[in-house]
Amino acid sequence: MKARIYIMPKSGVLDPQGKAIEGALAGLDFVGVSDVRQGKVIELTLSETDATRATAEIDAMCRKLLANPVMENFRIELIS
């Protein structure tokens, strides 16, 4: 089972990298761009084949290591 995990700064948490990107886009004359946020994507493959169990396992991974719940949210996507 392949999975992709999206980790994003929580809304309400200042994302200075997103702000810098937004400023750079404005500098390139892209108008009307707002709410730029930068996160990260982690891909992995599990030997688990059951979707429910795979999701539960990745959820535990996110809580323990992959994301920091103080400042980040995560979303799990099973690819195949």
Binding site: P9, V13, L14, P16, Q17, A20, N68, V70, M71
Partner: peptide, 15 residues
């Protein structure tokens, strides 16, 4: 990160 203190440390606001 180990949960021994509350909160977290993010990228400096000025990057």
């Amino acid at each position: 990160e180990a949960g021994l203190l509350p909160g977290g440390l993010m990228r400096n606001a000025g990057l």
